[in-house]
Design a protein around this nucleic acid. Structure first.
Lengths: 192, 192
DNA sequence: TTTTTGATTGACTTGTCAGTCAATAACCGG
DNA sequence: CCGGTTATTGACTGACAAGTCAATCAAAAA
């Protein structure tokens, strides 16, 4: 076995296994041993490549966040300029990061971000990017893009949350968010 | 010390301490010892009254859920019949269950509900009641109360989530949800 | 006063888990 | 084919936490 250049493969396997394990357990209370076993190696090796459990979690979180970013970016490049908002929403519910294990892991990373500084930083970056994307997409189509962006971002998170809890069903998720967006855009002023 | 009838007091203290401890730690990884210490007793006593960590968590979750139910119910009884929707939203963001520790604990209970059957049951009851309340409030004011209720429920959860993450700020939370509701009601049809 | 009963805890048991380490195996370039 | 490097693990440890238990203490009841 001991060929050279295993590191990237091992790391990727561990990251994937981490997401699956967290998704299956529905919690961060998974042991390095469980993760390593699922990834087909010893726990010692997992420590060798990542240094510690926290770093494994962070890598998994980065992976999920990156996947999400990529989905949104792809949707955005394919979108017509006046449909950027819909693209962001579609990207947010791409099957990739919308599979049960990922959503469940995502939910648990929320909790993780409350404890771990770096995790909090990652999450804040994600939130900022989403907000900025939304504002940009909304500016030409509504007169209060900041406020609308906050509302839509919350709606996305809320729908995500419910998807994570009721594992998987939630088919019309994107449509629901689009409905909200549509309603907000059609109404001139939403102050109360 | 050993007077009679300590049990209710002890249980209440433990429940409160559990919420505080989970809120402070930002995670369910709190020890029975920590909880008991915060509640001013030994861990053995906590076990004596509750039987185990899981039951302590469940009791804390029930407490939060009950508090929420009470807030909504109170707001609902005080509301004019045509403002029931706004009352539900206000009740959902009552300062009681909206304080940082409670929201943080709430978030972690979401995670707990993925693991523990009873916790899942409690959460589903809460979701069902919220949905039913919303539908009832929406029926006279819109033609698709079911769909609107799901959207507004998701919005409430999403705003809650963001409040839990960015500990505490989030002052105009209720207003944002009301804005969404308002927009949904003014638009006749929201299908995409 | 004596007995019963709830309240309470320190000490203990048992288990688990993160992280370490020394040893082994297999590739690679020279 | 040899010395260096990477890969890999079994075995170990130190810490910590859940849950148990027997003993103690003090109020209440008899």
């Amino acid at each position: 076995m001991p060929k050279i250049g295993q590191e990237p493969k091992r790391r990727a396997a561990l990251v994937a296994a981490t997401v699956e394990e967290i998704g299956a357990a529905g919690s961060l209370e998974v042991t390095v041993g469980q993760i390593a076993k699922r990834a087909g190696m010893s726990s010692a090796l997992a420590h060798h490549y990542f240094g510690g459990k926290t770093q494994i979690f962070l890598a998994a979180m980065r992976h999920i966040l990156n996947q999400y970013s990529r989905d949104v970016r792809d949707a955005l490049t394919k979108a017509q300029p006046d449909r950027r908002l819909e693209a962001i929403i579609d990207g947010s519910f791409d099957p990739n990061c919308f599979d049960p294990a990922a959503t469940s892991a995502w939910l648990n990373f929320y909790s993780f971000a409350q404890r771990d500084q770096e995790a909090g930083r990652l999450l804040r970056i994600y939130q900022k990017r989403l907000h900025s994307n939304l504002v940009h997409a909304l500016r030409p189509r509504c007169d209060k893009p900041q406020e609308a962006a906050q509302i839509i971002a919350a709606q996305i998170d809320g729908v995500y949350l419910r998807a994570a809890l009721n594992k998987g069903d939630m088919n019309g998720a994107a449509d629901k968010v689009k409905a909200v967006a549509q309603a907000l855009l059609e109404v001139k002023t939403y102050d109360a």
